[in-house]
Simulated assay, not measured.
Amino acid sequence: MSIQNPSDQEIKEILATNKRIAVVGLSDKPERTSYMVSEAMQKAGYDIIPVNPTADEILGVKAVSSLKDIDGEIDIVNVFRRSEYLPEVAKETAEVGAKVFWAQLGLESQEAFDILQEHGIISVMNRCIKVEHAKWK
């Protein structure tokens, strides 16, 4: 099945009901898009968990090396890694039982989409979570 994002109404519902976001590839540099987007989502009331093996803390939160290092449920896995890494992150998303996989603007992978579909995980690709959130706040 070709990549198909949820409808705008479904995206609104995803953002209204899922507040714990693991951000894969979150940079500790404030000038990077991943930092700015995650900071905005944090200020909007979302619980941001930085997934970055080279950082200790980002946005005042202890960083973890992988999704498997996160205690508790993960609602959304928001990915800021190049498209060729999406299948690997999709597999890990399925392993930890996250509800939603969200690949940022410019990122998509048919292979990752297929993995997510096999595991019943909602997937959003090539969309900015901050822009989508701004539509509905």
Score class of each variant (00 low, 15 high):
residue 1 M to V: 03
residue 1 M to R: 00
residue 7 S to I: 11
residue 13 E to M: 07
residue 16 A to S: 07
residue 18 N to I: 10
residue 19 K to R: 04
residue 19 K to M: 00
residue 20 R to C: 05
residue 24 V to R: 04
residue 26 L to G: 03
residue 26 L to K: 00
residue 28 D to L: 09
residue 30 P to L: 13
residue 33 T to Q: 11
residue 37 V to L: 13
residue 37 V to I: 15
residue 41 M to Y: 08
residue 41 M to D: 08
residue 43 K to W: 14
residue 44 A to V: 15
residue 47 D to S: 13
residue 50 P to G: 10
residue 52 N to H: 11
residue 52 N to S: 11
residue 56 D to F: 09
residue 60 G to L: 11
residue 60 G to A: 08
residue 62 K to R: 05
residue 63 A to V: 08
residue 63 A to E: 08
residue 64 V to F: 12
residue 64 V to S: 09
residue 66 S to G: 12
residue 71 D to E: 14
residue 73 E to M: 12
residue 75 D to Y: 02
residue 76 I to D: 03
residue 77 V to P: 02
residue 77 V to T: 04
residue 79 V to M: 00
residue 79 V to D: 01
residue 81 R to Y: 06
residue 83 S to I: 00
residue 87 P to I: 14
residue 87 P to G: 12
residue 88 E to Q: 13
residue 91 K to I: 00
residue 92 E to I: 04
residue 92 E to V: 03
residue 102 W to Q: 00
residue 102 W to P: 01
residue 108 E to V: 12
residue 116 L to N: 03
residue 116 L to G: 03
residue 119 H to F: 15
residue 119 H to V: 14
residue 120 G to K: 14
residue 124 V to R: 09
residue 128 C to Q: 09
residue 130 K to Q: 12
residue 131 V to H: 12
residue 131 V to N: 10
residue 132 E to R: 07
residue 134 A to M: 11
residue 134 A to W: 12
residue 136 W to K: 03
residue 136 W to H: 10
residue 137 K to N: 03
